[in-house]
Design a protein around this nucleic acid. Structure first.
Length: 579
DNA sequence: GCCGTTTTCGGCCCGACTGTTTTCAGTCG
């Protein structure tokens, strides 16, 4: 049983307790515990095996720790089974409908015997829902609409699709006279890998005029709602965007509030409350006197509470507030720290731009180094390089490096890890290269055990420097491979192979939680774009966002290190080979 | 059920919206 499954059960318990009418705080305790487990980098199975005290995890106490132990040990939880038995199966499904909470769900179950979305649909259609006490025609109508929406799309948009749209809208908004502040908020600002919608915040001298200008932007397909200080629009990609404008003096508090996460805000407010303050989106009130403090800038909100500024990417209620109080937050790596990209393709294989164009683009970004890593021979579909072409490419690379100047260009490969864990070039060819990125591209359906053996074998090859896009997932299109991550991270840590944080917006691979765990185990990382065109280098920020969400500092990210130090990694690291 | 800068007991974030309510409950972010 993995953490995600445990978290699901804890969430289900919370829902059942809600239905039961249990005290709200007990419900919240289970919801918090579920989230804590879902975000916990180390698998519970392993934590228990190693004798960790689960109560050290914020939100986990004696009672829930025991339940997790029972779940891990036996695969089931008596308490959960008993709770489930008290309700018709499927009733918690109703809670997934926005607008339907425990009270409404219980009413639907008890009065109408509805236990599934299908039955609910029927009950709405024949008017039984509208006839319930406390509900009316309007409620039934809303439920019907929400049911439809739930079916149509329960999909979130990849960060890489949403962020450019948000930035275009913000640029448009900033052109409007009188607009002084404009920023994205929400999960987009926290760099979550997918977002449900886009939240924008701003201040304007004349809010209604700014709102009017906003809904008239060319990106806007339709305005769903438009008030004097708020607008909700659809953009052409179908994404929903909310804009909210406030007084200049309150922008800091507003941005803080709407950036979230919800759990971070709850933790922050509890923390403040214990010190006599009440925090809301309108400012910070002194509880004793009622005096309210206003903040134009978000930094001031945290400073007022005696906290270091907490970067949005780590606002997830994972202990960041306590660290900020002690002034002990990590110095997260920044996009400007990145000095080179170690995974790039050219038109020698499936890239769009020439080798020279790629090198020039990297130098223009101010990079000190770049690796050209075209595909290996077995990737026929990408025109993978034969050994002869690979060697030919090196000659060109050396002359381009000289011509362009000011940037070190490494010759590398993105070599296929074959189904049996061998690599797609012989060792003596790999030995000629500066950088070897080993990646999975085929036979991605292997069962976990086989896939793990395959990867461990590949990482044991002393020529391999980097494990490329380790899970091979494509966001929203292809699931990650089945892999014993713990074993892989241990292997990478031992052999010194760097794990790639692939910044390509369709991948974001490794993902944040895995990066956290690998970092704990002593792994180091490369944030690479896997650029297939010069313009793709700009995607580096998505990968940096993942690294930041995993609390990575510059020391963890090898390609944020100066050239000399990076060459130490390539040429002089202690290579441990063998399985 | 969790937790501790008043506390091992008695608290537990805050405000807005919606619908159905004649003063508020339920739900959401």
């Amino acid at each position: 049983m993995n953490n995600a499954q445990i978290a699901d059960i804890l969430d289900a318990i919370a829902s059942l307790l809600e239905l039961k009418g249990e005290e709200r705080f007990k419900v919240v305790a289970y919801q918090r515990a579920a989230r804590a487990i879902a975000l916990h980098p180390k698998e519970m199975v392993l934590a228990l095996k190693e004798g960790d005290d689960l109560r050290a995890i914020p939100g986990i106490g004696k009672s829930i720790a025991e339940k997790i132990e029972e779940l891990v040990r036996s695969g089931r939880l008596e308490y959960f089974e008993e709770l489930k038995a008290q309700f018709p199966p499927g009733v918690t499904e109703l809670l997934h409908i926005p607008g339907v909470g425990p009270k409404t769900a219980l009413k639907l179950v008890q009065e109408l015997g509805v236990t599934s979305l299908e039955e609910l649909e029927a009950a709405v259609a024949d008017g039984r829902v509208a006839g319930l006490p406390g509900l009316g025609a309007k409620s039934a109508e809303n439920i019907e609409r929400r049911l439809r929406e739930l079916r149509a799309k329960e999909r979130r948009i990849p960060l890489g699709a949403a962020l450019p749209i948000a930035e275009e809208l913000l640029a448009g908004l900033r052109q409007v006279p009188g607009v002084r502040q404009a920023s994205a908020a929400g999960s987009l600002r926290r760099f979550r890998e997918t977002v449900g919608d886009i939240d924008l915040m701003g201040t304007a001298d004349d809010p209604p005029a700014a709102i009017a200008a906003f809904v008239a932007l060319p990106q806007v397909k339709a305005a769903l709602a438009q008030g004097p200080t708020k607008a909700t629009v659809l953009v052409h990609s179908g994404l929903q965007v909310d804009l909210r404008l406030v007084e200049h003096q309150d922008f800091g508090s507003l941005l803080q509030h709407f950036t979230g996460s919800k759990e971070h805000n709850v933790a922050l407010r509890e923390w403040a409350r214990r010190r006599g303050y009440s925090v809301s989106e309108y400012g910070i009130a002194e509880i004793a006197s009622g005096r309210v403090h206003h903040f134009q800038r978000e930094e001031e909100v945290y400073r007022f509470l005696g906290l270091q500024f907490i970067p949005p990417e780590i606002r997830e209620a994972r202990g960041e507030i306590e660290l900020a109080a002690r002034g002990a937050l990590p110095r997260l790596v920044e996009a400007d720290d990145i000095r080179g990209d170690l995974h790039a393709h050219t038109d020698w294989t499936d890239g769009q731009d020439s080798l020279e164009a790629m090198v020039r683009a990297a130098r223009e970004r101010g990079y000190a180094y770049l690796a050209i890593t075209d595909h290996s021979v077995g990737r026929g579909i990408t025109n993978g390089l034969s050994v002869e072409r690979l060697r030919e490419q090196r000659k060109l690379l050396q002359s381009v490096e000289q011509q362009v100047g000011g940037i070190r260009v490494f010759h590398g490969t993105e070599v296929d890890i074959r189904a049996d864990g061998t690599l797609d070039y012989p060792d003596e060819v790999l030995a000629e290269l500066d950088v070897v990125v080993a990646s999975l591209h085929s036979a991605l359906q292997q069962p976990a055990e086989r896939m793990t053996e395959r990867v461990l074998r590949a990482l044991a090859n002393p020529h391999v420097d980097v494990f490329g896009h380790p899970s091979a997932r494509l966001l929203g299109e292809r699931p990650p491979v089945e892999l014993d991550w713990e074993a892989v991270f241990h292997q990478a840590s031992r052999t010194g192979v760097a794990l790639e944080i692939n910044a390509s917006p369709g991948r974001l691979d490794l993902k944040d939680v895995h990066v956290s765990r690998a970092r704990e185990l002593g792994c180091r990382f490369l944030v690479n774009t896997d650029a297939h065109a010069a313009r793709h280098f700009a995607a580096i920020r998505y990968g940096v966002g993942v690294a930041r969400r995993a609390w990575c500092e510059s020391q963890h990210i090898l390609n944020s290190r100066p050239l000399a130090e990076f060459e130490d990694f390539l040429y002089h690291r202690q290579v441990v080979s063998g399985l």
